[in-house]
């Protein structure tokens, strides 16, 4: 019984820690994105509040909380109110399976540095990431606005087209690690990261997660110059903030998934594992911001074309070749 309670307490502590870290990271990623985008466009970005604008996230939160929480007339009120929470929640839930450091030995107990080391952690991640679209879609539909509906439809189509290639790109990784558990996948990359072993799968996964998290160049669901704000057109105040924060939590999650699956997780010379892990996550996040500062938005038919006619056949081919090579090596 005490063992059970200890386990529970450990899980709660880890959950709380991760919750705090992820939320503050998301808040500061917003600032980082604004600063980096600003510098890429020869501006300064926010720099009024505190040194280098470091208090800006706090000010943003205060502004969002004190704004009016507007519910449009004729909207599906309850769904409208629930949807933003769904987005932020699903984004947060994914982090449960991400291992950020090798297991620690404390008080003679092996303490895994992951909230819950599921043996099907990868499938859990896939499931939760595909659930994330529900918040967007239901929010967009419940707003009773044509722009929101268009944004919702776009994000649905995008998710449907890119989830397949994402899943297919992950199978070679699972084949080499021989496990769905993310800890085992990181362990299998001790010699060299999966980036070297599966470069094509890495590229496909990179493009797919960019599309799935609605990052530029795939940010059609919230394309400002076509459909106002997309699915969050009608949202204001902290509900808009939840959508916004959910997007940046997603950025952290996808960065850590990319790190775990392809960049070798916590493995790295000299520095402690957790530092390596955070560095890699931040680097991936920077790359996504960099892409936002660089690339124009795709057209919608180009997006569908890329997903169905390029990425999925490539992913299937990659899977076939990888499986054949592994079989040949084995037998």
């Amino acid at each position: 019984m005490s063992d059970l309670l200890l386990n529970l307490a450990l899980i709660l502590v880890k959950l709380g820690l991760i919750f705090a870290v992820i939320l503050s990271m998301a808040a500061y990623l917003v600032l980082a994105e604004r600063k980096i985008l600003g510098r890429m466009q020869l501006r300064h970005g926010p720099n009024r509040l505190g040194p280098f604008g470091l208090i800006q996230p706090v000010a943003d939160v205060i502004k969002l909380i004190t704004k009016e929480d507007f519910v449009p007339d004729q909207s599906d009120k309850w769904l409208f109110l629930f949807a933003p929470g769904l987005t932020a929640l699903t984004a947060l839930l994914s982090f449960v399976v991400v291992p950020f450091s090798p297991p620690l030995a404390i008080f003679g107990r092996e303490l895994p540095m992951v909230v819950c080391d599921l043996n099907i952690g990868l499938l859990y991640f896939l499931g939760i990431s595909s659930l994330g679209v529900y918040g967007v879609v239901i929010g967009g539909w419940a707003s009773n606005s044509k722009y929101s509906l268009l944004g919702a439809i776009r994000s649905l189509g995008q998710l449907l087209s890119y989830e397949l290639s994402m899943g297919l790109a992950l199978i070679p990784v699972v084949l080499t690690a021989k496990s769905f558990s993310l800890t085992d996948i990181v362990m299998s990359q001790a010699d060299w990261p999966n980036l070297v072993r599966h470069p094509l799968a890495f590229l496909i996964f990179l493009v797919s997660i960019a599309a799935e998290s609605k990052r530029t160049p795939f940010d059609m669901p919230e394309a400002e110059n076509e459909i106002v704000g997309g699915f969050h057109t009608e949202y204001s105040g902290m509900r808009f903030g939840l959508f916004f924060v959910g997007e940046y939590i997603n950025l952290v999650i996808l960065g850590s998934m990319l790190t775990v699956l392809f960049l070798g997780g916590w493995h790295g010379p000299l520095l402690p594992p957790i530092v390596w892990f955070s560095l890699k996550v931040l680097f991936v996040a920077f790359c996504f911001i960099w892409a936002r500062g660089t690339m124009p938005r795709l057209r919608y038919d180009q997006l569908m074309h890329l997903g169905w006619k390029v990425l999925i056949p490539l992913a299937l081919l990659n899977l076939l070749v990888t499986a054949a090579v592994l079989l040949a090596l084995k037998g």
């Binding site: 595909s130 679209v133 879609v137 539909w141 649905l156 449907l160």
Partner: peptide, 8 residues
């Protein structure tokens, strides 16, 4: 998700 897509 496909169902929702078609409905919308």
């Amino acid at each position: 998700v496909l169902f929702l897509f078609i409905i919308m």
